[in-house]
Amino acid sequence: MTVLHRGAPPLPPSVSPDRPRVTELRLSAFGRHRGLTFSLGPFTVLTGPSGSGKTSALRALEALAGLAGGASLADVFPDPRRYVPERARPDAQHRRGFHLGCTVEGPAGPVRLDLAVQAEPELRVVGERLTGPGITYLETALRDPGRRHVQAAWHTAGSVPVTRAPLPDDLLGTALLPLRVAGRTEGQRQVLAAAEQVVVGLRSVFACDPDPARMRAPVRTHTDRLFTGCENLASVLRRTRAECGTRHSLLVAAARAGLAGPVADVLAERTPTGAVRAVVDRGDGPRTPVERLADGELRYLALALVLLTGPRVLEVDTAAEVPEAYQNLTVLADGLDRGLDPAQSTELVALASRMCARGHIRLVATVGEDGPAVRAAREHGATVVDLET
């Protein structure tokens, strides 16, 4: 593998137990996608021309993650009609919807989650299946449209092979199973293991889209978990520089490779009002406030920081009941190369490849068609999915 940053200290080896991880996304009827299934590796790049559905595919994975964390359908799909396939015809009851799913691999083997959502005339789950090879752990169906629940059946393998009960029609049934299944029989324990694997694999997702316009202003120091738009970059820089010198040195090396001019350090300094602002130390005089950097430089710096941090620094919903060593942080980056020049795109992809190979994070990113980011991703062995082919 290419040596990324000369002079940067090596990271210690990553401990990678058999952590649950999302390895496949299925969009059988979602937005413009019909029958689309693709694998997700440690580093996955979605590419294709404008309108090919890169962003909606990323949005589907983000929505599944939110549902696994206990969010309602309305929370994750505030405008559900946009995901109904354009040519989908309503049935006799004027109902239309969409279908999506994923596979999560881990100690319980490959577990499939498939979800059918009704978007019109009202938003609700109409069907959910949680399955493994040769076994159905959970199956739900909408039996009575006049009631706000689905009828669920889950594997028991005891004196009664299947347990049936109603579940809410606006939540993911898989995420509710730990509250409903006692775990007394071997079958129930299998169900719990499968459900926990899916929930843990989908949680800890950080959707990142740095917004340079919001990153230029000083911020208060108490916001030390990085937001999706990276507007509190300065406060997080102040924290990470103090907590981990090795990772900060890697960030400085990345900044040196991607920012114009010399870079001796990247840090946060206090303003007269008590806030902090991010600055670049040029090593030869006055420091450069980040508000003077170009938009592409700001996006590059923020994305490099994301790749070099973790769930305790990013604003993510981790599974608090599961040790961090058994969780995977998944970063979703829509437009990884947006606003970046070819050298920055190539350098950022190389950094992403290095961090994903260590097991530090998993990254699913969208990039422009046939650009330097795609070529670099292929060179570094990333999973590249062309949504136009």
Rank of each mutant, 00 (worst) to 15 (best):
T346Y: 11
R256I: 04
C356Q: 04
E196L: 11
T156N: 15
S159E: 15
P289Q: 04
S14Q: 14
A257V: 01
T288W: 10
R239N: 14
G381S: 10
V205H: 02
P342A: 00
V3T: 13
G7N: 08
V252Y: 03
S52M: 00
Y326T: 12
G296W: 03
N232P: 08
D91L: 11
A57D: 00
D170A: 04
L100N: 03
V331N: 14
V252W: 05
L115W: 10
P90E: 13
R189W: 07
G106M: 09
R21L: 09
R148S: 12
E269C: 03
G229M: 07
A257Q: 02
A254S: 12
F38E: 08
K54N: 00
Q197I: 15
V191N: 02
P166Y: 12
G69F: 02
G7A: 08
A302P: 07
L46Q: 02
E139C: 02
A71F: 06
A207C: 00
P90L: 08
K54Q: 09
R299M: 06
D91K: 01
D317Q: 04
D224I: 10
D281N: 11
H155Y: 15
A8F: 13
A57F: 05
L332S: 03
V364P: 05
F98G: 05
K54E: 01
S204V: 10
P161D: 15
E24G: 04
G285W: 01
A242I: 09
V374F: 03
A165G: 11
H5P: 11
T44A: 09
D386C: 09
V219S: 09
P311D: 15
A217D: 03
L348G: 05
A350C: 05
L113V: 03
A71G: 10
D75Y: 03
G371F: 11
P168L: 09
D334I: 10
K54H: 10
A373Q: 10
I361G: 02
V266A: 06
D18H: 05
L61C: 03
V316K: 10
A304H: 03
V374I: 02
S52C: 05
S235D: 06
A29K: 08
R89M: 00
R180G: 06
R89N: 08
L130N: 07
G381E: 11
E347C: 10
P311W: 02
L305Q: 13
G371K: 07
P311Y: 07
C356S: 15
S52T: 12
V181D: 11
R87C: 05
R241P: 03
A65F: 07
L11I: 03
L172Q: 07
D144G: 01
V162E: 15
T389K: 14
D169E: 01
H5L: 12
A182S: 03
R59W: 00
L46V: 07
V3M: 12
A68R: 02
A260N: 05
A242L: 15
I361R: 09
Q188R: 12
T318Q: 15
V117F: 06
R292V: 10
V367F: 14
D79Y: 14
R241V: 06
E243V: 15
R338C: 00
A71D: 07
R287N: 09
P289I: 06
D334M: 11
T131W: 04
A194P: 13
A255F: 01
L233T: 09
R34D: 02
H33V: 10
